[in-house]
Every structure is written in C-alpha cells, then in structure tokens.
Design a protein around this nucleic acid. Sequence first.
DNA 1: TCTGGGGTCCTAGGACCC
DNA 2: TCTGGGGTCCTAGGACCC
Length: 440
Amino acid sequence: MMEYLTSEYDYQFEKKRVFFLIDSKSFYASVESVERGLNPLKSVLVVLSEAENTNGGLILAASPQAKKKYGISNVSRQRDLPAASELIKVPPRMNLYIKRNLQINNIYRTFTDENHLLPYSIDESILDMTKSWHLFGDTPLSVAKRIQKEVRKKTGIYLTVGIGDSPVLAKLALDLEAKKTHNLIGVFHYSDVPKKLWPISNLSSVWSIGKKTELKLNKMGINSIGDLAHTNPYKIRSEMGIIGEQLYALSWGVDRTDLAEKVKTKSNSYSNSQVLPKDYTVKEEIEVVIKEMADQVATRIRSHHKQTTLVSLYIGFSYAAIEEKEESGFKKQLRITPTNDSRMLMKIMTDLFEKYWNNEAIRNIGIDYGDLRNDNYSQLNLFETPKQNIKSQKVNQIIDKVRQKFGITSLMRGVSYSKGGTAIQRSNLVGGHNGGNSYE
DNA sequence: TCTGGGGTCCTAGGACCC
DNA sequence: TCTGGGGTCCTAGGACCC
C-alpha cells in the first residue's frame, strides 16, 4: 500500500523490544500523604508552594482524589482552591522527593542494569527490560506488577507503568492508557497502533506534539495520528525537518533510541531562572540578582566538576514594558573560554546585561551555563595571571565546601545583603520550591 | 489570565575560512 | 571578469516536556 516507501521508512520488520516507562502517581502529593499515614489514592491533599514570587501560592501537585472531587489541576493557583475543610494543604519538601526518587530508582536497579535505566524526571524513569524481564516473571505484565508491589511495599507510592515494544510506545501506553486502567498498567505493541493510536484526533494530547505543532499539522490536512501515518514521509520531512520524521515514526510506534547510548549524554547545561517578586527598574538592584544567580549556577557546575563554554542571560520585561516595547524581553548568549569561576561569570553576565538593557522594567531573569566540559585541568586565560587564577579557584573550592556542609545561606556573598537581592529568601529552594530540610 | 522553574533539541541565517 | 561552494561556528528564537 505504501509504494513510495524505501527501506528508510519501512517499519514492518521493526525490532520488538520491551520497555517500561514508569511514573509515580501524583508523586509529591503521594509522598506527603504517606508521610502522614494516609493512603495516597484516598487522601484529599495538595502541595502548595508559597514562595514570595508565586503571588499567593502555586499548586505543585494534587492527589488523585483532590483532582477528582474538586477538579484541581497542577500549576493552578491557591486562589482557585475550593474552601473545603477536608482539603489538606502542605508546603513542598523538594529534598524529600529527591530522596524518595533515588530510593525508587534503586529498586528499579534490581530489575535491570545501570545502562538500561534512564531516570527521565523526578517522577519518571524508563527501563529497557528486553534482556532482563524473563528473570522476574512469565510475562512483562507480571514483572510490571511485581515492581509496582515492591515499590508500594517499601515506599507506599503507587506506580503507573506503560509497557511498549519501543520507548515511545511505552510512553504512549503510560500517558494514554495506564493512567485510566484499574491496575495502572498500559500495554502498547506495534500491532496495537492502528487500533489505539490512529483514531486519536486531539493531536496535542500525544507526547511531543504541542499546540503549535498540532496547528501546523492541521494546516497540512493531518487531523489524526492515522492521517499522519498515511502521509508521504518525504513530504512531512520537507515541511518539518527532523521533527517531521520523528512524528511520522511516532505514528507507527517506532523509536530506535538506545538507552545505553542516551545514558552517557547526560545534562549539558545548568540554569536558574526566576520571576521576581516585583518589577525591578534600578540597574544596581537588577545586577545584584544577576550576580547572585550567576554565582549560584557557577556553584552548581563546580560541584559537578564542569566548566561552561556557552553562557546565556535571559531578561523578561514587566507586562507594562512588554506592551510598550512589543517585545517580551531578550536572551543573549556568548561563547567563552571554559570557566567555572564565579567572579568571572558574574562579570560576564552583568556586562551582557549592561550592553543590551535599555532601562525597561523587568520581571524575569534567567541564567544558563551550557556546553559543559569536564574540569580536569586549569585553563589559562587572557584575563588573569596564573597566580590569580589559582587563587580564585581556591576561594571557590572553599566556598563550595562550606556550602555543602552548612547550606548555601551560610555563605552568601556581600551582594545579597544589599537592596534587591533575592538569594537569601531563595536559598532554601530546590527547583524553585521549598526544599524542606536540606543538606542532611 | 497579572508571571513557576529546569531542562533538551531543532532551525535559520550570518560570519568566516579554504 | 558579473553570483563558487562546502563546511563550521556562532547567535537568536522556537517548541516541547516534566
């Protein structure tokens, strides 16, 4: 039927593998429920972040019952919450969630080896079980149940599992099926694709397709995944490049990712960003925040023994400035000689800011250090003599050590005590939210 | 509607080199 | 004399995900 296909897009002999995409159901809310001796599936609980810049509170997670009874969704606002007395509101404890996540991944490690496990986010991991599933049960399904049981027993957390012949099928099984079934497991084989995938017409409900891409596809006359599967892949590729190719493959459930390869290409950038608690207009105050953030991200890359070669500063304007300038802000990036030195990075960032800022009121700041290299050796550079260079490295090392031991508040640079600084208020934050107890 | 935060990947277009 | 072409690096901007 597809006479125009060459072997490049011929999927009929696609290799069948066994992938589990596992997520912890309503993770933060479940952890908090367990900590209170409540059943995560029965509790009515939300995790509410009340950092200064969330303007009254942001819902990070809602338990299944909170969603069902009151229609609360994640990232809704405190002002949208119902005034129900049974609703438990708790502050986030990010460090605890990280700890639980590590514990759960350690359980996964008893079912597959390190190279075939890829933690994907704080509550999702992908496991290549192709070679190991038969050691633990008669069918992949029974193995999935066993993992669920084990994690439930040791941590109280319920798992949702997508099982697929390829990574993307496992992901789709998770998103489209497992969340609705009684046993919290969904299974997608290549042979299920026409029945389970092709009828879907709400394209942006499918992972990797957002609103913009959905619109673009609709304009090409593609209104379902089935339409996508039956469009000439060369046409999609010429209109949408690599993304188009990937979408076409997805419509057939095909994904040739090798986890063992992917595991090696870990994180290549670290960033911090924040919405400021108010509009900032004074240059010195803005620069205090930029310096704090430049310093914090520098601390992070040093702790990973990395140096950055590509730095980027994002400045987001206030609503009023956006309207006036008809621009949302600016992002400037710069290729630099490898460094992880706080002082130098703070200078680079404030220089970038001064060069491009035209007195707009701002509300958003982001700092990103990318294209990371290993910090094996000390790079000489043009701006510091070797002696100075070694000295500032030593200062950095000492600062990092103290921070590791006592937390980042213990040693804020002088700038943070001056007007405008946000680092002290933010120092206990992890991923922008309260860490709870930190640095155990 | 009055602002969450941390990531990854892709593309276009310009500069520069041989 | 009337547009060389290929390759690489760089910046900006877009899109998507959890």
